[in-house]
Design a protein around this nucleic acid. Structure first.
Lengths: 113, 113
DNA sequence: TCCATACTTAGGCATATGACTAACCAACAC
DNA sequence: GTGTTGGTTAGTCATATGCCTAAGTATGGA
């Protein structure tokens, strides 16, 4: 695990730690959308909302392209997968340990007889 | 999805958005540990480190119990699973959409002939 | 050309975060 | 009971975050 990846994970998790930004990720799961479309459901000044978009783009969860005066955002799968991977790995380790613990306790129980 | 759950997710993701706290989670995956044990690998004043533990406990990722003068922390699986679930769901939606898109493009291609 | 649309930039402000030191308890261990 | 260990509280400080308003830019349409 390189430092770069660590920093990336930091940013991704931090980005997801906000309901507005998670809502944006959910929305973009349905397909690309413009700044205006994304902002509409959130009662928040546009510049404030754009900071959230910037955070999402900075951590790579999202990409944008401007055509004419419209900027369109789309979801980017890799960072989400990386974060998911981290959690799945953690859980795997944790569960493996509990399995070993079960074995151990089982052996204890058997050796009682 | 209740507001409570939202808030919980906010806190969990935020908690994971810090390398020190992720390291603690990884460490606790191996089994419970005391404050001192957890703190040792991190060159940071103890009170600073304890703030991280507090953050982890506040979002439910971790629980602690004090016996004598030693406080022992253990991992708590539920919130981690909740966060993982959110991500898996997101990815599922996103991939389903891409599948439909593939179908669509495929149909376009077929109708060309 | 003139106006509306769709963002963008600049700047300000309150609160939250993350780190520190210093001083403080509460159990052991002698 | 005196000192040591393990943790806790209190208080300070710098920076980051998240929101706002006001003003600016650039595109597209009439």
């Amino acid at each position: 695990m390189t430092n770069q990846h660590q920093l990336q994970l930091d940013r991704v998790f931090h980005a997801l730690g906000d309901p507005t930004r998670r809502a944006v990720v959910r929305r973009l799961g349905q397909g690309p959308a413009s700044v205006g479309e994304l902002a509409r459901p959130h009662k928040m000044a546009l510049p404030s909302f754009m900071q959230h978009l910037a955070a999402l783009e900075k951590c790579g969860l999202v990409r944008s392209r401007k055509v004419g005066r419209v900027r369109t955002y789309r979801l980017q799968p890799k960072p989400l997968k990386a974060a998911e991977k981290w959690m799945v790995e953690q859980r795997a380790l944790w569960e493996r340990r509990l399995d070993r613990l079960d074995d151990y306790l089982l052996q204890m129980k058997e050796s009682e007889t």
